[in-house]
Every structure is written in C-alpha cells, then in structure tokens.
C-alpha cells in the first residue's frame, strides 16, 4: 500500500495553467469544472502590488471532512490514500462541497460557464452528463472516474486510473522516468517548470518526503484538521485571508 501525495513548489510554478488544461483534457471536465485550477490574486496597492497564483487540486486529505459528512458513504478514502466518489451512491446533496475547506468539489448540473453549453453541443449518452467525441477510455463510476452522470459531485481523482497501475513499491512517479511516465498524474506530467512532484508519503526515501523535509513543506488550512496530502513549497504557501473590496 502507498500513501500517494503531491508536492507543489510555488517558487517554480509560473502560473501557466498547463496543469489545468492537461487535467481537463485527461478527465473530460466541463468548463468551470476545474478539478485542478490556478487561483490568481494580488496583494498591496499600486505601485507596490504583488501578483500571486496558487495551483489547487483536491488535497486528498488524510482526514477528509468531505468523507465524514457524506450521508451515503459515496465519498470514501481508499487504501492508497485516494479520496474518491462513488457516483452510483452520490445523491447530489452537495454537503461535501459545503464541508470541503479547499473548495475543490464541483456540481456540474448548473448554469454553463459560457455559451454554447457543451452539454447541448455534445448531448449525454449512456447516462453521461455530456458525451464529447474524444474521451478518456478509462471510466469507473464507482471511483468518480470518467464523465459523470447528472446530479452528482465530481472532483480530482489524483488520476487514479493512471497512478493505480504503477508498479508496487515505487517511491516516486517521475515523468522523467520513461518506465513510469504513463502512471504520472496528468497535471504533474505536463508541468513545464517541473513544479510538481508525486510520490509515496509513507516511503521515507521518496523525493516528495525529502522535499517536504528539506524545503519545509506546508499544508493549507492546517487548523481545519483535514491534513492534506498535498504539500506546498516556497514563500507563498499560505492562503491570504478574505477581505471585501472597498465599495466606496
């Protein structure tokens, strides 16, 4: 058994959003259903403005509040540390979206982000909410993989359909290793500045553990107790507090 985790080095991340694009292509997500998105924000006032960005996948928490609140056990954590959703059990109550402190869950049975609505352009077949002509052949509704049916919640799976096929006992999934690249999550594999690392958090020799130790990796919103399995490196590894823009 592994405990898969991700490390994102914010000092290397350029905010190019290739990860978001690769994720959308890999998982056939709808516009707005950003399983992996990059949040942009700025701090300070002109001329001392600091523009920042923050890549945000599902944190696949050790102690996921989304799982605890699910009234049907549709959201569950498997033995390898993935937090997954069984779409055959999900009732679309959206309680998990309420309870996720990281805002990484999506309910796509809502207004389209822009027109035309891709659900109209590619109408759903075989129970899918939409059916684009090119789809990832891997689909498993018991794990929230593939294109979801109507009325369920979706989220990042850490590319379970790839990672779960990795050779047993491997410490890291590095896209630079030809033998392992097919098992690397899409966002990690496509990251041009190599800001992302994926490996076994239970393996003390893994690169992810070494980076977390050497570069003082931090997890987001630790006070919630969710204990993410995604760690951030670099100086921007905190989420700024909310403040309302001055309305005057």
């Amino acid at each position: 058994m592994a405990k898969w985790g991700m490390v994102i080095d914010l000092d290397k991340c350029t905010g190019c959003q290739a990860c978001s694009t690769a994720c959308a292509m890999e998982n056939n997500t709808l516009p707005g259903e950003s399983w992996q998105d990059v949040l942009y924000y700025h701090e300070g006032k002109f001329p001392s403005v600091n523009v920042k960005w923050f890549p945000r996948p599902c944190m696949h928490c050790e102690n996921p509040s989304c799982m605890h609140v699910c009234p049907t056990k549709a959201t569950y954590k498997d033995a390898d540390g993935f937090v997954l959703i069984d779409w055959n059990k999900c009732i679309g109550c959206k309680y998990c979206m309420i309870a996720c402190p990281y805002g990484v869950r999506f309910y796509t049975d809502e207004k389209p982000l822009f027109a035309p609505d891709l659900k109209d352009v590619f109408p759903g077949q075989d129970g899918q909410q939409w059916s684009p002509p090119y789809q990832n052949p891997h689909s498993d509704w018991t794990k929230g993989i593939g294109i979801q049916p109507k009325g369920v919640v979706s989220k990042c799976t850490f590319c379970h359909h790839k990672v779960s096929k990795a050779p047993a006992g491997v410490a890291d999934l590095d896209e630079a290793d030809p033998a392992l690249k097919e098992f690397v999550p899409a966002c990690v594999r496509t990251c041009a500045p190599k800001a992302r690392y994926f490996g076994d958090l239970d393996n003390p020799n893994s690169t992810v553990n070494r980076l977390i130790a050497d570069k003082r990796g931090v997890r987001l919103l630790e006070h919630t107790g969710n204990k993410p399995q995604v760690y951030y490196l670099g100086e921007h590894g905190t989420v700024p507090g909310f403040s309302r823009p001055d309305k005057s």
């Binding site: 699910c70 009234p71 049907t72 059990k89 679309g92 109550c93 369920v152």
Partner: peptide, 23 residues
C-alpha cells in the same frame, strides 16, 4: 434541491454513514 432524490431513498438507509450529521 438535491441531485438524486429517488436514489436517496435506498442509499441513505443501506449505507449507515454514521459519521455524517445529515445521515
């Protein structure tokens, strides 16, 4: 309001999600 109200009728009673206040 919810996505699958009919499914709710059998998945809630059969899954015993006792950690959920909603259950």
């Amino acid at each position: 309001e919810i996505g699958n109200p009919i499914r709710m009728l059998w998945v809630i009673p059969t899954n015993f999600a006792t950690s959920s206040p909603m259950w």
